[in-house]
Design a protein around this nucleic acid. Structure first.
Length: 744
DNA sequence: AGCACGCCGACT
DNA sequence: GTCGGCGTGCTC
C-alpha cells in the first residue's frame, strides 16, 4: 500500500475527514491502523499529529500534491488510537462511513467541539483597557476596538463564541491580544463524580460459593498465565454472577489494569451501581443516558487521566478511553440492547472481543440464558465456559406450570385469566404476597381488526397495526400517528370492528374487576416515559405499596422482589409471532426470565405460563427451566435453515421517499449482486421490508447468507463501491446489518 | 486550529 | 509607495 488514510487530531468540522499521505519506504513494514503519526500539514507544513485509519493504493487526490508522513509517534498504542482502530474495524465489519464510525467511538469528538465554553478575560485594568480602546479607535483598528468595547461592556469577561458571532472578532485578533498580555482565554472544565455523596465504600467480606470460587480461580489462573480469551459464565438468575465479576475485577485492578462492565441500559439502576461503588469506592464510574453531555465528557476525561479504573455502562461504555484494560464484562449478554440499531450496526459482544484483542484483555459474557451464538462458541471450545447452577442462600428455582388457553376456551372460560392462574392469584391475595403479571405487548388491546373483511387498521406512514388505547384512540407505536377509533371499517365499511387480545391496561382493569381490593401498579412504555417514573414504580412495588405489578418486558429484567411468589405470563406465544429467526430464542429467554422473578426470597415461587401453543419447544423448555433442551432444538433449526451462528447472515436495507425509484434501484442492486456469482452465497429477495413504510420512507431488504463470512464482507465492499460509482443512489439510503437481531 | 494571501486605510 | 491589520480560504 502506497498511501495512508489519516485523520487530523484537531476538533474542527472542516478537518473532520480523511487526508491521504505517502508512506515512506522505511515505515511501510511498521505502519498499522490506529497508530499515531506525525506529518506536515497546511500551507506552512507545520508538524501535525493524527491517526492512521486505513490504507489505499488509489488516492482520490492528485498524487503529485500528496505529502509524505514524517514518523510514527512512539509510546505504544494509546487509548485513543485503540478507539480509532475500533472505528476502522467497525467500518469494515458493519459497513459505515469512517465519520459515522468515529462518531460512535469518540462521542466526545463532537461534544467538546460544541460544549467547551471558552471565555475571554481582560487582564489589564479598566483604565488601561479604555486607553487601549481609544488608541485602537484612533489607529482605526476596528476589530480590536470592537473586542475591547465588548469586553469593557461586559465587565471584562466575554464568551468566545459570542465574541465571534456577535462582534465578528476573528481568531488572529484574540491571539494577538493574548500575546500582548491584554487578555487570557479560560476554559471552564470541572470534572465531577456523578456519585459524589450518594454512596459509601464498605469493607465487607464475601464468601463465595464453591461454584463461584471455581469460576474465579479458573479464569484468574489462566489470566495470570497470560492466557486471554472469552468466557461464558452461565448462571441461573440469583446465582451470584455479579460477585464473580467483582472478585475478578478486584484482582485485575490490583495489577494496575482497568475493567469495563457492560449492562443493558434498563438494568442499570442505582442498586446495580451501588454494589460496585461499595466495593471499589470512587475508582468506579458510570455512564448512562441521563448524564448530560458535559458529565459524560467528564467521565471520559477521568478515565483517560487514570483517576478511575472501573467503568459501568450500556454498550457505548465499551468505548471508554482506558489504556490498560484487563477485563471486559458483558452482563446479560443475550440482550438485544447489545446490538446497535443505528449505523454502524455493531454488536457490542463482537466489538468487546475485538477491543480485548487490541489491549490484551479477557472477556466474560454472563447470562442465565445465553444467546445461541455464545452457547455455540462455548460448546465448540472457542470460549471458556463456567456454570453457576445453584441459587444463593435458601432461594430455590420456582415451580413452573403451563396452561393451554384453547382448553380454557373449550371449558367456557373467556376471561384473560385461566382457572389455574386465577386460583393462584386468589391464594396470594389472601396470603398478602405479591405477584407479577407479564405481557409482551403494550396498549389497550393490541391491533383492531374487521370481522367482515379481516383487515387490521394500520398506520398510513409506517404500515404497522395501530393500537387501541384507553381513551378510545388508535396510536402508531413507531411514529406516534393517532386517530379516533372509527365506527366502521375503513376498508369495507362494516360496523363489526373490534379490538383483539388484551393489553396491559385491560389486564389492570380485569385484575381490579376480579379482585376489587387489589392494589395494582402498571408498568409499560406509556407509564415510563421518563426514567424517574420507571424507578418510582419499581421502588413502590419493592416497598410493598401494591399487590400486583402488571407490565411488559421491562418488569422481568433485573430487580429482585423477595415477596413476589407468583408470576403469571398471560400469552406466552405473542413473541413467537415476530417475523424473524430469533423469535423462539427471545421467547425462551423472556419466559425463563419471567419465571425467575418468582421466589427470590424465603418463600417458594410459582410461575404460570398461559399459551395457545403449549407444544412449542421454547415454551416446553422454559417450563422445565431446561436451557440444554432449548439449545438442542434451536441449533438444529438454525442448522437446517442456515441461520446464525451456523451461517453468517447479512441484511442490506434500502429506503427512499420515492417508491418507484427504490423499486428500480433495488432490482438493479439485486442483479449486480447476483452477477458477482459468489459460490456458496445465498441471496434472499429483494423483498419488501417487514415495515414497508416508516416515516414516509419506503423500505426494501435483501438478505444474504453464507458459511463463509469473508464472502459476505467482500460483497459488502463491492456493493459500497458500486453505490458510489453508479448514478442515482443519492436519494436512497443503504445500510448493512451483520447478523440482524430484528426484522427491518 | 493556524497559516498565507490579498485587500484596504494610514503614514513617510 | 509601503507598512501592518484584518478577513478569507485552505489544509492530503
Amino acid at each position: 500500500m502506497e498511501y495512508a488514510n489519516v485523520i487530523v487530531d484537531i476538533s474542527h468540522e472542516k478537518l473532520d475527514r480523511v487526508f491521504q499521505y505517502r508512506i515512506p519506504e522505511h515505515l511501510k513494514e511498521h505502519l498499522k491502523t490506529g497508530m499515531q503519526v506525525q506529518f506536515p500539514f497546511g500551507n506552512g507544513n507545520r508538524p501535525m499529529k493524527g491517526y492512521v485509519v486505513g490504507f489505499t493504493d488509489t488516492p482520490d487526490y492528485p498524487p503529485e500534491k500528496i505529502k509524505e508522513l514524517d514518523r510514527i509517534m512512539e509510546g505504544g498504542v494509546r487509548a485513543e488510537s485503540q478507539l480509532i482502530a475500533m472505528a476502522a474495524w467497525m467500518k469494515e465489519r458493519y459497513g459505515s462511513t469512517m465519520n459515522q464510525a468515529l462518531k460512535t467511538v469518540l462521542p466526545v469528538k463532537q461534544e467538546i467541539a460544541e460544549k467547551k465554553e471558552v471565555r475571554l478575560r481582560l487582564i489589564v485594568s479598566k483604565e488601561q483597557g479604555e486607553a487601549l480602546l481609544k488608541d485602537a479607535l484612533h489607529k482605526n483598528f476596528r476589530a480590536k476596538a470592537r473586542l475591547l468595547a465588548a469586553l469593557l461592556d461586559h465587565g471584562g469577561v466575554l464568551d468566545k463564541k459570542e465574541a465571534a458571532d456577535r462582534y465578528k472578532v476573528t481568531a488572529p485578533v484574540i491571539r494577538k491580544f493574548e500575546e500582548d498580555g491584554i487578555l487570557v482565554q479560560e476554559s471552564r472544565i470541572q470534572y465531577r463524580n456523578p456519585f459524589e455523596g450518594h454512596f459509601e465504600q464498605k469493607e465487607r467480606t464475601v464468601l463465595l460459593t464453591e461454584e463461584q470460587q471455581a469460576a474465579v480461580d479458573g479464569i484468574f489462573s489462566e489470566y495470570e498465565k497470560g492466557i486471554r480469551k472469552t468466557y461464558l459464565l452461565q448462571g441461573v438468575t440469583g446465582s451470584g454472577k455479579t460477585e464473580v465479576y467483582m472478585e475478578l475485577i478486584a484482582r485485575i485492578t490490583e495489577e494496575g489494569k482497568q475493567a469495563i462492565v457492560l449492562i443493558p441500559e434498563i438494568a442499570l439502576t442505582f442498586q446495580t451501581v451501588r454494589r460496585f461503588y461499595e466495593r471499589f469506592g470512587d475508582r468506579v464510574s458510570v455512564m448512562h443516558s441521563r448524564l448530560s453531555d458535559g458529565e459524560r465528557y467528564d467521565q471520559f476525561v477521568r478515565a483517560r487521566e487514570g483517576s478511575i479504573d472501573v467503568m459501568i455502562g450500556p454498550r457505548s461504555a465499551l468505548f471508554t478511553p482506558f489504556s490498560q484494560i484487563g477485563l471486559i464484562i458483558i452482563d446479560e449478554e443475550h440482550e438485544g440492547a447489545y446490538k446497535s440499531e443505528t449505523v454502524p450496526r455493531y454488536d457490542a459482544r463482537e466489538a468487546a472481543v475485538y477491543r480485548a484483542s487490541l489491549c490484551g484483555a479477557s472477556v466474560i459474557l454472563g447470562s442465565a440464558t445465553p444467546s445461541v451464538e455464545t452457547a455455540f462458541h462455548a460448546r465448540n471450545g472457542q470460549y471458556g465456559w463456567y456454570r453457576l447452577d445453584r441459587r444463593i442462600g435458601r432461594a430455590v428455582l420456582p415451580e413452573v406450570s403451563v396452561v393451554d388457553l384453547r382448553e380454557e376456551l373449550k371449558a367456557g372460560n373467556r376471561s384473560i385469566f385461566s382457572r389455574r392462574l386465577y386460583s393462584a392469584m386468589d391464594d396470594r391475595m389472601k396470603k398478602g404476597q405479591q405477584m407479577m403479571l407479564f405481557l409482551n405487548r403494550r396498549g389497550l388491546s393490541g391491533f383492531v381488526s374487521c370481522r367482515s373483511c379481516g383487515k387490521a387498521i394500520r398506520c398510513p406512514h409506517c404500515d404497522v397495526t395501530l393500537s387501541l388505547h384507553g381513551d378510545g384512540s388508535l396510536k402508531c407505536h413507531y411514529c406516534g400517528y393517532q386517530i379516533r377509533m372509527p365506527k366502521a371499517c375503513p376498508t369495507c365499511g362494516s360496523p363489526y370492528i373490534s379490538g383483539f387480545r388484551a393489553g396491559t391496561q385491560q389486564i389492570e382493569r380485569e385484575v381490579k374487576k376480579y379482585f376489587p381490593k387489589a392494589r395494582v401498579l402498571r408498568m409499560d412504555y406509556d407509564t415510563t416515559r421518563t426514567r424517574e417514573s420507571y424507578e418510582k414504580i419499581l421502588s413502590a412495588f419493592g416497598k410493598g405499596e401494591a399487590d400486583v405489578l402488571v407490565g411488559t418486558q421491562m418488569i422481568v429484567k433485573g430487580h429482585d422482589f423477595p415477596n413476589v411468589t407468583l408470576v403469571g405470563v398471560l400469552a406466552a406465544d405473542i413473541s413467537l409471532y415476530a417475523s424473524d429467526y430469533r423469535a423462539a430464542e427471545r421467547t425462551f429467554q423472556l419466559l425463563t426470565q419471567a419465571a425467575g422473578r418468582a421466589g427470590r426470597g424465603e418463600q417458594a415461587g410459582e410461575a404460570v405460563i398461559q399459551t395457545y401453543m403449549p407444544e412449542h419447544y421454547s415454551i416446553q423448555a422454559a417450563v422445565k427451566q431446561d436451557y440444554e433442551a432449548f439449545y438442542r432444538q434451536e441449533i438444529a433449526y438454525r442448522n437446517l435453515m442456515g441461520y446464525p451462528p451456523v451461517e453468517t447472515m447479512m441484511g442490506i436495507y434500502l429506503s427512499a421517499g420515492d417508491q418507484e425509484l427504490l423499486e428500480e434501484k433495488t432490482k438493479a442492486l439485486g442483479i449486480f449482486i447476483r452477477e458477482m456469482q459468489q459460490q456458496e452465497v445465498l441471496m434472499i429477495g429483494p423483498a419488501d421490508a417487514a415495515l414497508t413504510r416508516l416515516n414516509d420512507r419506503y423500505r426494501k431488504v435483501i438478505y444474504l447468507k453464507s458459511r463463509q463470512e469473508e464472502k459476505l464482507l467482500l460483497i459488502k465492499n463491492k456493493t459500497e463501491h458500486y453505490l458510489e460509482m453508479d448514478a442515482g443512489w443519492e436519494k436512497i439510503r443503504v445500510q448493512f446489518d451483520m447478523n440482524p437481531f430484528q426484522a427491518y
